[in-house]
Design a protein around this nucleic acid. Structure first.
Lengths: 246, 246
DNA sequence: GTCTATAGTTTGATAGAC
DNA sequence: GTCTATCAAACTATAGAC
């Protein structure tokens, strides 16, 4: 869990240079070889391609259903190269979730008892909807993992995520105790926000088919976020901030 | 889509006698052979076992990730027997969804413009939560299919389910037009109820880990349903029916 | 660093003995 | 109706040529 120096917002780019411990110590030799372009560039690029391809395949077929062959084809590489960068299938899967959970943690800022409940919850909902829009595949990958019983993420759920929920729930409870919002179960409220926002990524196909659309656009996500902020904040006894409605 | 005479509430029992067209016309001969116990009994029982086992496996691993071998092991039958009852893997998968969609249709009654909005929505939420409690595996199987892009259910989504949503949304819109509830997007409201209720089946593992519980019990589902009814009805400007709260 | 060849399993599905 | 034997194909992973 070393902090990696990623300033990129790209999906796969975050995960570069995670599997280099097997490559040996010769890393600073790049300046000594002018004829070759830096090999780490190729390495990074292939890393990216493989992880992006793997994310799609794993999200579509699950862990067991995904073959290294398919990942290689989608990445445009020979199958052997995939196994050169990642020693086996599990390692690819693990690397993906390290990145996803790290990004997840980075996105969600703290909430404090002195914050305005309406503002804080609205921001939480909007950030989650935005995450569904920008990283739908990661969301589906996470969902598949949980549906299948979280064989790889169980530990993370019962440690990091439990603490995360407990902290937020405590703040919400303080808002309730201070009479600043309706008394609702804070943990259930977090579940409600999770489920309703993730739905736009995980069940996108159902939404598209039912709404008879080819793809979900920015304005559709904005509309969904406005709806959710309105209903949930009203459901918590919080006056929603002025929401433009057609 | 022939209506089958099932009065059973069991998961797999609904699907019995779906694959018999390959068995030949000799069905009423049971009375003529007193020495043998009726063969259709064995057939039914094995059908049930295979479908129940397949539901678990497909929900856990997806279509590609599931092997006939695993289904057979869980059903306690040799692999060849599974392929005797169902000619191939796709046929098992299709049969499961025929049953699931049929049960889904049977459970959800119509809503009418003259109904009370609060009562109707509360009932809808509670029925869906109850479905998550009684049929979690079917819910996860459905979720997996949608997440993977609904390769088998796409047609159903864009016909039956689209009509279903359109009808309900129209009624909700009439409630809004009559000033009986807050103006919210009816289709989004249906999505919200779907996602928030299914969450208790699909993401059960996450909920259990976060709440530090071994299993979700009846009272937990009741609590979740109470919470959802409270927040969503309040979010729609409907006074919730008196909900007992600890 | 890249890629071919292949070992060693496991898969979906079939044929046929009982 | 049940089950053993088996096939061709596809899979993960490794060894080693270039």
């Amino acid at each position: 869990m070393k902090p990696s120096p990623d300033a990129s917002g790209s999906l796969a780019a975050v995960a570069v240079d995670r599997d280099v411990e097997a490559a040996g110590p010769s890393r600073k030799a790049s300046a000594k070889r002018p004829s070759k372009y830096r090999p780490s560039r190729i390495r990074e690029k292939n890393h990216e391609c493989i992880l992006a391809a793997a994310e799609q395949e794993f999200a579509l077929q699950g862990f067991q259903g995904t073959t290294i062959q398919k990942i290689a084809e989608r990445a445009g590489l020979p199958k052997s190269n995939v196994l050169y960068y990642f020693s086996n299938k599990q390692r690819i899967y693990h690397t993906l979730f390290e990145d996803i959970m790290q990004r997840w943690n980075n996105v969600f800022s703290e909430i404090k008892p002195e914050d305005d409940p309406a503002e804080a919850l609205a921001k939480f909902i909007r950030v989650k909807v935005e995450l569904s829009r920008t990283h739908p595949i990661a969301s589906r990958l996470f969902a598949t993992e949980i549906i299948q019983g979280a064989p790889f993420l169980k530990d993370h759920l019962r440690t990091n995520m439990r603490d995360w929920v407990r902290d937020r729930a405590q703040v919400i409870q303080q808002w309730i105790d201070a009479g600043r919002m309706t008394a609702v179960d804070p943990v259930q409220l977090i579940f409600l926000i999770w489920s309703s926002t993730q739905h736009y990524a995980d069940f996108q196909m159902q939404i598209l088919m039912v709404e008879n659309k080819a793809e979900y656009e920015q304005r559709d996500f904005d509309h969904a976020a406005d709806f959710l902020v309105g209903v949930i904040l009203r459901g918590c006894g919080l006056v929603p901030p002025s929401v433009p409605r057609a």
